[in-house]
Amino acid sequence: MRVRALRPRWRVAAPLSLFLSAALLAGCADDPPAPPTATASPVTLTNCGEPVEVARPPRRAVTTNQAATEIMLALGLADRMVGTAYLDDQILPGYADAYAKVPVLAEEYPSKEKLLEAEPDFVYASYASAFGDEGVGDRAALGTLGVGTYLSPAGCAKEFRPARLTVDDVFAEIRDIGAIFGVPDRAAALVADHKARIAAAAETVSGAKDVHVLWWDGGTDAPSVGACCGSPGMIMSAVGVTNDFADLDGSWTETGWETVVERDPDVIVLVDASWDPAAGKQAFLAKNATLKDLPAVVGQRYVTIPFSATSAGVRVVLGVEALAEGVAALPATASR
């Protein structure tokens, strides 16, 4: 996972950071309040432990990664974007028209030169790698060029990342972006809508807590499973089911099949990705000498969820709905 490749970045130039700390003290430390109305008022908030100061809403933003791009489009900010890059999947159909109007700077990360050619005033990314050597360079360097930056909290270095990602962290990010771009009302409406949909989805699963789920992301030697603290864990807890591997640290963590057999999950989430389709996973389970007799495999108690649903952005609600719908559609299991 890209999220695993995080490195803390301590390269903020001293004078700049002093100046910004002062600005930060004047503002607010942890919970940035969205400015109520005025679109022109300066916004100061903390992102990954670094202050982000926006004097006026950016007009030439560049996004990298799926989640950041889709959050911008969901907030109706396509007209403020001068470039996007690095999707993992097709853009959500509802945003396809808006997306088509924004230039794609690169298939993956643009080089720094390519980025600057677009003359951005703001860069918004989902993964720390975007501001790494393989990406557009570090945030402090962009800051000295007058380019503001925002990194998804889920992509922050460990000490600034939510210890256990929840849907509220994603909502906070959406509100941050709404505040930065001067559209807090749109952000609030989007969050309210997603909250309602998540609550409705969770209601459809009765006795969710007794449903023990294995979220199998991939890996046949050592299965990589949804652990406590990342997107899979967030989606499972939003639905209310029990993550059989919540005792594992990290977002996705490798375990062994013996442990899977011992825990004997009720439902197996098969992550569907172009590089590792759910159908292949299902075939592996059915053929494996041990796993073919796992009750969840015998009963075909699978829920297929696209990998893109784990992108921590506007798709979270789709992941929650897919899991809830899939679990609700399965015949009731004998309780443990």
Binding site: M1, A5, E108, T220, A273, W275, D276
Partner: peptide, 13 residues
């Protein structure tokens, strides 16, 4: 290829 998931299983292997 730059496919984090593919490289993850490669690393394990």
């Amino acid at each position: 290829v730059n496919e984090p998931h593919a490289t993850q299983s490669i690393t394990f292997w």
